[in-house]
Design a protein around this nucleic acid. Structure first.
Length: 626
DNA sequence: CACCGTTGTC
């Protein structure tokens, strides 16, 4: 191939040859084939004779042919016949290369220009810098940087911003800082580049400091900061900023909307999510695939599976992300069959699944106990789709096996993993040990967890609860002491419910609430009816070594129960209730909610830290497998 | 003729 000789690759020719005059056709044919020096001479003559049809040809094509010619100066002669100045003609070639599939060509062409003393202007340099950035070639970039300064362009904001951006992407932090500090002027783009860098490094505080002190903010600045907060797990701050941006009269664009919706999804803020949806419809953003994908995610995580389906069904164009999001959403809501059906439909439509699609599918299987089906997906994903399982897939498999009670198999699966198991993997085994009461394997899992994730309180809590359930109080105490010694604190459980846009949070045993009295009275009335329907308080979940009647009192003050009763008191009969909990829902509350849903004839949707439980007519969407 | 921002899992 020619390209191997010259290092230049042929960019696609977007020219409709059919619609051209015979003369131009000749030229195009010539350009399409290998052009020897003599052919180029013919072309040259042709161009002169017909008076510049060259302008109608893509300059990158010309540059390509010219670069094949050992006498490069010939290209210059060609360009001298164009009406546009020579540098400008080269710039359009460089631009085409820099934005094409092989940005390296822009650099190679630029090198040739230099040796032939074609004088570069600021645009020339911008295209070369663009190529360096796309190639992440910081050493070439440094050379261009020097050149930019030599030519006296150091106060050209476009160029300096591009150099700064290149350094933030692949240079040292120091290089970027040096350029930033030395810049004679800065504009909003300069600041945005610096903020982007800090966000990527996870230095959200530093990013926000810059955001606060920058002179003028564009929509992009706001968007950057909002998505920065989302990325580092601070959806409250993201939403706060989103509202502040609206106050400031800045109109969100598609990207802002995506970031805002992601925050709503994480926080379960359905009200704002719906408002952003409405705004997206009005602004025509809903046609954007990414916006729709994030809308699906938002509705799924806010417990509105039907709304998510509506968005999905209404999409004109879907990507693998759309399908994966919907499959994962169905999985999260315990609709495994529907998730598998959607997968088949996806395959029928010729859409290729990716690794994330399979995480969703395995998730669906583990949440309903489709062990064999899950195993099949796990092998099929590699055999049929060539996807190498990642740690997430192993995590799902261990979860699938452990939940189903196949603890030995799960353990062997971990031991035989080709990659190092992480804390999620061992944590899944530990979770299964809790459900199926296997102390020995729980201890084995804990051994690994205290090395892999020693500061995560969840694992200590599960182990100590396993001991407590087995009445091994000394071991329980030992684990609690270990936690104290290591300075690990148990995350307090809370549940929240949103009414008229106000979030009400409850913690277990909360009696300071203004409606505490009413809540207790309502609960007592309910519990009587529940007991008639066979409710027996499951005091075994109260893992304290105390008297039975005391245990009942603790049980009745669980945060999710308080939130539910508060919701029942303060909403119209028949309206669905949505509750969020930061930890997993407790077993007794689960049993209670099923009965309550029938007694008060309400749909109760609970978002747990893992999944959704939708209680209706006395049963739960999880079919009690969780 | 140019620079900066976005989605899906555990």
């Amino acid at each position: 191939m020619l390209s191997t000789v010259t290092g230049l690759h042929l960019p696609p020719l977007n020219h409709n040859t059919d619609s051209h005059s015979p003369q131009t056709l000749t030229a195009t044919h010539l350009l399409n084939s290998f052009a020897s020096p003599s052919e180029l001479k013919q072309l040259h003559a042709h161009l002169i004779k017909t008076n510049s049809p060259l302008t109608s040809l893509p300059p990158s094509r010309i540059a390509f042919v010219c670069s094949l010619n050992p006498s490069f100066s010939y290209a210059r002669k060609l360009f001298q016949h164009l009406e546009t100045p020579e540098t400008e003609a080269w710039n359009s070639c460089l631009k085409a290369f820099a934005e094409g599939n092989d940005p390296i060509d822009a650099i190679l062409l630029f090198n040739q220009l230099q040796s032939f003393c074609v004088s570069p202007d600021s645009f020339t340099l911008s295209f070369v810098l663009k190529a360096c950035t796309r190639l992440l070639d910081v050493s070439k970039g440094r050379g261009i940087h020097g050149y930019v300064e030599k030519l006296g362009f150091q106060s050209n904001l476009f160029l300096m911003n591009m150099i700064l951006n290149l350094y933030t992407l692949c240079g040292g932090e120091r290089d970027a800082r040096l350029v930033f500090d030395k810049m004679p002027q800065r504009d909003v783009v300069t600041w945005n580049i610096m903020i982007t860098q800090l966000v990527k490094r996870g230095e959200i505080k530093g990013a926000y400091d810059l955001f606060s002190q920058m002179p003028g903010r564009s929509v992009r600045s706001w968007t950057l900061m909002i998505s920065g907060f989302v990325q580092c797990g601070k959806p409250k701050e993201a939403i706060g900023l989103f509202l502040e941006m609206e106050e400031a009269g800045v109109r969100p664009n598609e990207v802002t909307v995506v970031a805002g919706l992601a925050a709503c999804a994480d926080l379960g803020d359905l009200d704002l999510g719906r408002r952003i949806h409405e705004y997206s419809n009005q602004s025509g953003f809903s046609r954007n695939v990414r916006v729709s994908n994030t809308l699906i995610e938002m509705y799924v995580k806010c417990g509105c599976l039907e709304d998510a389906c509506k968005v999905f069904d209404g999409m004109k164009e879907r990507t693998v992300v759309s399908w994966s999001a919907m499959i994962a959403g169905l999985a999260m809501h315990g609709q495994a069959e529907e998730a598998l059906r959607l997968f088949s439909e996806m395959i029928e439509k010729g859409m290729d699944p990716n690794d994330v699609t399979f995480v969703g599918l395995l998730h669906a299987c583990s949440h309903i106990g489709f062990v064999d089906q899950g195993r099949e997906f796990f092998t099929s994903m590699t055999n049929d789709y060539g996807i190498v399982p990642k740690i997430e897939h192993y995590g799902c498999m261990v979860d699938l096996l452990s939940r189903a009670g196949l603890l030995q198999e799960a353990h062997e699966f971990i031991i035989n993993m080709p990659i190092k198991p992480n804390s999620v993997v061992w944590g899944a085994l530990l979770g299964g040990c809790k459900v199926h009461k296997n102390i020995e394997l729980a201890e084995e899992a804990t051994k690994h967890l205290s090395e892999l994730d020693p500061l995560n309180d969840g694992y200590y809590v599960v182990l100590s609860n396993i001991y407590a359930e087995a009445q091994r109080w000394e071991d329980t105490a030992r684990v609690r002491k270990l936690m104290r010694d290591r300075g690990v604190k148990k995350t307090p459980g809370w549940s929240s419910i949103t009414l008229d846009g106000v979030v009400y949070e409850f913690v277990a045993g909360d009696e300071t609430h203004p409606q505490a009295q009413e809540i207790v009275q309502m609960w007592e009335k309910l519990v009587e009816k529940m007991k008639l329907k066979g409710y027996v308080p499951n005091t075994s979940v109260v893992l304290l070594d105390i008297e039975e009647d005391q245990k009942e009192k603790f049980l009745y003050r669980h945060s999710e129960k308080l939130a539910l009763i508060f919701g029942l008191i303060n909403t119209e009969p028949g309206t669905p209730i949505r509750i969020m909990k930061n930890l997993r829902v407790c077993e007794d509350c689960h049993a209670a909610f099923k009965l309550i849903s029938a007694i008060v004839d309400r749909e109760i949707v609970v978002r747990d830290r893992n999944r959704f439980h939708c209680f209706k007519d006395g049963s739960c969407s999880c079919k009690d497998y969780w």
